[in-house]
C-alpha cells in the first residue's frame, strides 16, 4: 500500500447499542456506573449510559489498523473527547493521513455522533513494508 498525505480512510460506523456500551465498558474493566446503569447515569445529569474513554481508544486503534493492516505498529493514540456518545446513537469514524515521514504515518481521526464530534484523535503508526 502506498500511503500519501491527504489519503482518506474508509469510514467506520459503530452502532452504540446499550449492549455495546456495556460490553465494551466491562471488557475494558471500567465499572463506573455511568457506563452500565441508566438510572445512575441519568441521576448524574446524563441522558443515558455512554461510551467510556478506554473504548474510544480501542475503536480509534481498530479504525486505523483496519485500514493499515495487521503489520502496522501502533505507536501512539492521542485523543480528545467532545460530546458524549450515548447508548442508542451511531458513531461514525472518518480519518485522513496528516503526515508521512518515512515509515511513520500520522493519521487524524474524527468520530461523530448525532450530537456532534465525540472524539478527535491523532494516531501515529509505523508501517514497515
Amino acid at each position: 500500500m502506498t500511503i500519501t498525505a491527504g489519503t482518506e480512510l474508509p469510514p467506520l460506523t459503530v452502532e452504540a447499542t446499550p449492549t455495546f456500551v456495556v460490553a465494551s465498558a466491562l471488557a475494558t474493566r471500567d465499572f463506573q456506573d455511568v457506563h452500565h446503569d441508566r438510572d445512575a447515569a441519568v441521576a448524574r445529569g446524563s441522558q443515558d449510559i455512554f461510551l467510556n474513554i478506554l473504548t474510544d481508544t480501542g475503536l480509534v486503534q481498530r479504525f486505523v489498523t483496519d485500514w493499515a493492516g495487521p503489520d502496522a505498529l501502533v505507536r501512539s493514540v492521542d485523543l480528545r473527547l467532545g460530546v458524549p456518545c450515548y447508548a442508542g446513537d451511531e458513531l461514525t469514524f472518518t480519518g485522513r493521513v496528516a503526515e508521512v515521514d518515512g515509515d511513520e504515518v500520522t493519521v487524524s481521526v474524527s468520530g461523530t455522533d448525532s450530537l456532534g464530534e465525540h472524539v478527535s484523535a491523532t494516531v501515529r503508526i509505523e508501517v514497515t513494508a
Binding site: A23, T28, T55, R62, T65, D66, P70, D71, V77
Partner: peptide
C-alpha cells in the same frame, strides 16, 4: 469481541507468527 477488532495478530497464532510480531501480542489500546 467487544471492540470488534478483527486484527489477527491478537488472536490467531498462525497469522501472528507470520506477522512482524512473530507471535501473539496484546492490542496496544
Amino acid at each position: 469481541e467487544a471492540i470488534g477488532d478483527a486484527n489477527p495478530v491478537y488472536t490467531d497464532p498462525a497469522a501472528a507468527a507470520a506477522s512482524v510480531h512473530g507471535e501473539l501480542v496484546a492490542p496496544p489500546a
